[in-house]
Amino acid sequence: MTAAAAVLPGTFANGVARGRVEIVQFLRDRTAVVFTFAFPAMLLLLFGTIFGDDYENSGISVAQVYTASMIAYGILNTGFITMGSGLALDREDGTLKRLHGTPITSTAYLLGKLILVFVLSVAEVATLLLVGVLVYDMPMPEASHWVTFAWLFLLSVIACTLCGIAVSALVKHARTAGAILNVPVVALQFISGVFIHPITQLPAWLITVASFFPVKWMSQGFRYVFLPDSMKRYEAAGQWELGRTAMVLGAWCVIGLVLCLLTFRWSEKDQ
């Protein structure tokens, strides 16, 4: 028995191998590539063009505010939507069943997905910033803001990804995944200060509802990173609330992880 001496490859190595294959497959699907990256950029160009004015003589253009806020949308798009529909597709086309027939762990599979989302999110944010800088002359922030950016980006990606995995349990067919997942996504954009800002235009109760979800805190956090400090007066609390942002996003990471562990299944439930 030659196998007796050999050891099972580790979960981390398998996860990285999954991540590589996920990225290769994503890049070979041109439609997905174009749609994932062009859609948020197109929205940014549209909003920036339609509402092109200054923010009440603050010296900041609406387009710059949108650039910052749309980063939240970009991550939601790559994390929540890509993950939710990707998992439904993996369940439908046999990927999950195939992997479950091998010694790979579910952690390695999910690590692969997280790597894919992480790479896509970095590319997505870079695309949006490129549009912001080239088209709307957005100034880049100082170094200390990039530190905030780093933890905000990480927490946002993890929270969105885990919630996407959890919600994919509700998606029965990959065909309808996009439609189902876009309902919470679009609704949250409108009430979380991404599409409509200042958020204070919204009724107070709607802001309260939005405050329970991560998107409001993500968009607010990215506005802190990329806009001057004076812009905080347009926020719901008149403050950037970085501590609370970290807490809410951290809580969603935990909620997402628990939901994931409760709902993730290799195979469909017995029919």
């Binding site: 490859p9 699907d29 091998t102």
Partner: peptide, 30 residues
Amino acid sequence: ARIGVVLQDAEDAADLTVTEMVRHIAGFYP
């Protein structure tokens, strides 16, 4: 790792080449 499963109607990994997919799955075994 000691069993092998041949699926009946899988359509996965359509965008990978034969070699890429076989190598990928091989990587999970000791």
